[in-house]
Protein backbone atom coordinates (compact mmCIF):
# COMPACT_ATOMS: atom_id res chain seq x y z
CA UNK A 1 0.00 0.00 0.00
CA UNK A 2 2.93 2.33 0.79
CA UNK A 3 4.22 2.03 -2.80
CA UNK A 4 0.79 2.85 -4.23
CA UNK A 5 0.09 5.82 -1.95
CA UNK A 6 3.59 7.28 -2.26
CA UNK A 7 3.46 7.09 -6.07
CA UNK A 8 -0.04 8.56 -6.17
CA UNK A 9 0.88 11.54 -3.98
CA UNK A 10 4.13 12.08 -5.87
CA UNK A 11 2.42 11.92 -9.26
CA UNK A 12 -0.42 14.25 -8.23
CA UNK A 13 2.10 16.72 -6.79
CA UNK A 14 4.07 16.72 -10.05
CA UNK A 15 0.84 17.17 -11.99
CA UNK A 16 -0.12 20.11 -9.78
CA UNK A 17 3.29 21.68 -10.24
CA UNK A 18 2.95 21.23 -14.00
CA UNK A 19 -0.41 23.04 -14.02
CA UNK A 20 0.99 25.91 -11.93
CA UNK A 21 4.05 26.32 -14.19
CA UNK A 22 1.87 26.18 -17.33
CA UNK A 23 -0.49 28.83 -15.92
CA UNK A 24 2.41 31.14 -15.14
CA UNK A 25 4.08 30.75 -18.53
CA UNK A 26 3.75 28.22 -21.34
CA UNK A 27 7.28 26.72 -21.79
CA UNK A 28 8.92 26.93 -25.21
CA UNK A 29 9.84 23.23 -25.18
CA UNK A 30 6.78 21.78 -23.52
CA UNK A 31 7.52 18.04 -23.66
CA UNK A 32 11.12 18.54 -22.52
CA UNK A 33 10.00 20.78 -19.65
CA UNK A 34 7.34 18.28 -18.64
CA UNK A 35 9.90 15.45 -18.52
CA UNK A 36 12.25 17.61 -16.45
CA UNK A 37 9.44 18.52 -14.11
CA UNK A 38 8.50 14.89 -13.47
CA UNK A 39 12.19 14.01 -13.00
CA UNK A 40 12.52 16.92 -10.57
CA UNK A 41 9.56 15.57 -8.55
CA UNK A 42 11.18 12.15 -8.32
CA UNK A 43 14.55 13.65 -7.41
CA UNK A 44 12.99 15.68 -4.61
CA UNK A 45 11.26 12.60 -3.24
CA UNK A 46 14.50 10.59 -3.37
CA UNK A 47 16.13 13.33 -1.28
CA UNK A 48 13.44 12.99 1.40
CA UNK A 49 14.45 9.33 1.81
CA UNK A 50 17.45 10.46 3.81
CA UNK A 51 15.00 11.68 6.47
CA UNK A 52 12.30 9.00 6.04
CA UNK A 53 13.94 5.80 4.76
CA UNK A 54 12.03 3.12 2.84
CA UNK A 55 13.07 -0.47 1.92
CA UNK A 56 15.11 -0.52 -1.31
CA UNK A 57 12.75 -2.78 -3.29
CA UNK A 58 9.89 -0.39 -2.47
CA UNK A 59 11.94 2.65 -3.51
CA UNK A 60 12.70 1.07 -6.88
CA UNK A 61 9.06 0.01 -7.18
CA UNK A 62 7.89 3.60 -6.60
CA UNK A 63 10.41 4.80 -9.20
CA UNK A 64 9.12 2.28 -11.77
CA UNK A 65 5.45 2.99 -11.11
CA UNK A 66 5.96 6.77 -11.04
CA UNK A 67 8.07 6.72 -14.22
CA UNK A 68 5.49 4.64 -16.10
CA UNK A 69 2.66 6.96 -15.01
CA UNK A 70 4.70 10.06 -15.90
CA UNK A 71 5.57 8.72 -19.35
CA UNK A 72 1.90 7.87 -19.86
CA UNK A 73 0.97 11.45 -19.09
CA UNK A 74 3.74 12.93 -21.28
CA UNK A 75 2.58 10.77 -24.21
CA UNK A 76 -1.05 11.76 -23.68
CA UNK A 77 0.05 15.38 -23.39
CA UNK A 78 1.31 15.28 -26.98
CA UNK A 79 -2.34 14.76 -27.98
CA UNK A 80 -3.18 18.01 -26.17
CA UNK A 81 -0.23 19.88 -27.65
CA UNK A 82 -0.85 18.96 -31.30
CA UNK A 83 -4.29 18.64 -32.85
CA UNK A 84 -5.53 15.36 -34.24
CA UNK A 85 -6.93 15.96 -37.75
CA UNK A 86 -9.58 13.26 -37.25
CA UNK A 87 -10.78 14.56 -33.90
CA UNK A 88 -10.78 18.17 -35.18
CA UNK A 89 -13.00 17.14 -38.08
CA UNK A 90 -15.34 15.10 -35.88
CA UNK A 91 -15.70 18.05 -33.52
CA UNK A 92 -16.41 20.34 -36.45
CA UNK A 93 -19.04 17.90 -37.78
CA UNK A 94 -20.56 17.72 -34.30
CA UNK A 95 -20.77 21.53 -34.13
CA UNK A 96 -22.40 21.61 -37.57
CA UNK A 97 -25.00 19.12 -36.22
CA UNK A 98 -28.16 19.00 -38.35
CA UNK A 99 -26.86 21.21 -41.18
CA UNK A 100 -23.89 19.04 -42.11
CA UNK A 101 -20.86 20.35 -43.99
CA UNK A 102 -20.42 20.74 -47.70
CA UNK A 103 -17.25 19.41 -49.34
CA UNK A 104 -16.02 23.01 -49.72
CA UNK A 105 -16.59 23.72 -46.03
CA UNK A 106 -14.63 20.60 -45.04
CA UNK A 107 -11.76 21.56 -47.34
CA UNK A 108 -11.78 25.14 -46.06
CA UNK A 109 -11.75 23.88 -42.47
CA UNK A 110 -8.77 21.61 -43.11
CA UNK A 111 -6.95 24.20 -45.24
CA UNK A 112 -6.89 26.44 -42.17
CA UNK A 113 -5.17 23.59 -40.34
CA UNK A 114 -2.07 22.65 -42.35
CA UNK A 115 -1.14 19.57 -40.33
CA UNK A 116 1.90 18.60 -42.42
CA UNK A 117 3.31 22.13 -42.27
CA UNK A 118 2.65 22.22 -38.52
CA UNK A 119 4.51 18.91 -38.00
CA UNK A 120 7.43 20.19 -40.09
CA UNK A 121 7.48 23.39 -38.05
CA UNK A 122 7.44 21.31 -34.84
CA UNK A 123 10.44 19.27 -36.05
CA UNK A 124 12.31 22.49 -36.81
CA UNK A 125 11.28 24.02 -33.49
CA UNK A 126 12.49 20.95 -31.58
CA UNK A 127 15.85 21.19 -33.36
CA UNK A 128 15.51 17.82 -35.10
CA UNK A 129 15.64 19.26 -38.62
CA UNK A 130 16.93 22.56 -40.01
CA UNK A 131 15.86 24.44 -43.10
CA UNK A 132 18.49 25.70 -45.53
CA UNK A 133 17.67 27.26 -48.92
CA UNK A 134 14.31 25.54 -49.12
CA UNK A 135 15.68 22.10 -48.15
CA UNK A 136 15.33 20.26 -44.85
CA UNK A 137 18.26 18.43 -43.23
CA UNK A 138 18.37 16.20 -40.17
CA UNK A 139 20.33 17.81 -37.35
CA UNK A 140 23.15 15.61 -35.98
CA UNK A 141 22.11 12.07 -35.26
CA UNK A 142 18.61 13.10 -34.23
CA UNK A 143 17.07 12.49 -30.81
CA UNK A 144 17.36 9.10 -29.11
CA UNK A 145 13.57 8.90 -29.05
CA UNK A 146 13.19 9.36 -32.82
CA UNK A 147 16.08 7.02 -33.56
CA UNK A 148 14.49 4.48 -31.23
CA UNK A 149 11.17 4.69 -33.10
CA UNK A 150 12.89 4.28 -36.47
CA UNK A 151 14.95 1.34 -35.24
CA UNK A 152 11.92 -0.34 -33.71
CA UNK A 153 9.94 0.20 -36.91
CA UNK A 154 12.51 -1.87 -38.78
CA UNK A 155 11.49 -4.89 -36.71
CA UNK A 156 8.08 -4.75 -38.36
CA UNK A 157 9.33 -4.58 -41.93
CA UNK A 158 7.57 -2.40 -44.55
CA UNK A 159 4.67 -0.21 -43.37
CA UNK A 160 1.49 0.94 -45.10
CA UNK A 161 0.87 4.49 -46.22
CA UNK A 162 -1.28 6.76 -44.06
CA UNK A 163 -1.10 9.54 -41.56
Amino acid sequence: MAVFLTTLVLFLAALGLHLIVWKIRLPRFQTRTLLLLFAFGLGMWLLTLTVRPMPWPDVVHVCLFYTSLSLCYVITYSAFEADSPTLSLIRHAHDAAGQGMSSEEVHLFLEKRPFVKARLAALTHDGLVREENGRYFAVGGGSIFFRGILMFRKLYGPIQEGG
Binding site: V116, R119, V129, Y136, A138, R153, Y156
Partner: peptide, 25 residues
Protein backbone atom coordinates in the same frame (compact mmCIF):
# COMPACT_ATOMS: atom_id res chain seq x y z
CA UNK B 1 6.36 4.48 -36.15
CA UNK B 2 3.23 3.30 -37.93
CA UNK B 3 1.16 6.40 -38.44
CA UNK B 4 2.81 9.59 -37.19
CA UNK B 5 3.32 12.16 -39.96
CA UNK B 6 6.07 13.78 -37.90
CA UNK B 7 8.05 10.53 -37.62
CA UNK B 8 7.56 9.73 -41.31
CA UNK B 9 8.79 13.16 -42.38
CA UNK B 10 11.76 12.89 -40.02
CA UNK B 11 12.61 9.41 -41.33
CA UNK B 12 12.48 10.76 -44.89
CA UNK B 13 14.71 13.76 -44.07
CA UNK B 14 17.17 11.68 -41.99
CA UNK B 15 17.57 9.15 -44.81
CA UNK B 16 18.90 11.78 -47.25
CA UNK B 17 22.24 13.47 -46.65
CA UNK B 18 21.46 16.07 -49.37
CA UNK B 19 18.25 17.04 -47.58
CA UNK B 20 14.66 17.04 -48.78
CA UNK B 21 13.02 20.00 -50.49
CA UNK B 22 9.72 21.47 -49.36
CA UNK B 23 8.13 20.50 -52.68
CA UNK B 24 9.21 16.85 -52.23
CA UNK B 25 7.63 16.75 -48.80
Amino acid sequence: GQSSIRVRIYARVAARSDGVSVSEI
